[in-house]
Amino acid sequence: MSLHLVFNTAGYEACLKRKLSDDPIILLGDGVYCATQLEGGNIHALEIDAQVRGMSLAQSKAKPIDYDAFVALTELHSPVVSWAE
């Protein structure tokens, strides 16, 4: 199962169209700005990148993760696909 790294909001749109429905997503960098308008589940967000930008993940469907959890997700999934526009 693929893991999708989403680096910005346009990348999120491109990814959503082309991912299998169960594939997990990690939002990072400007991708965390998508955290308030998510569709579907199994979405994670790099907490430090949200904090940097003043984004709270409290009301978001995205699960906050740190780099150790990020690594663990890459261990579980292949390929790891990066999306940025």
Binding site: S2, F7, K19, P79, V80, V81, S82, W83, A84, E85
Partner: peptide, 11 residues
Amino acid sequence: IATQDVVIGAQ
């Protein structure tokens, strides 16, 4: 995408 070992080309 799902059937690849690696995907290259984030732009």
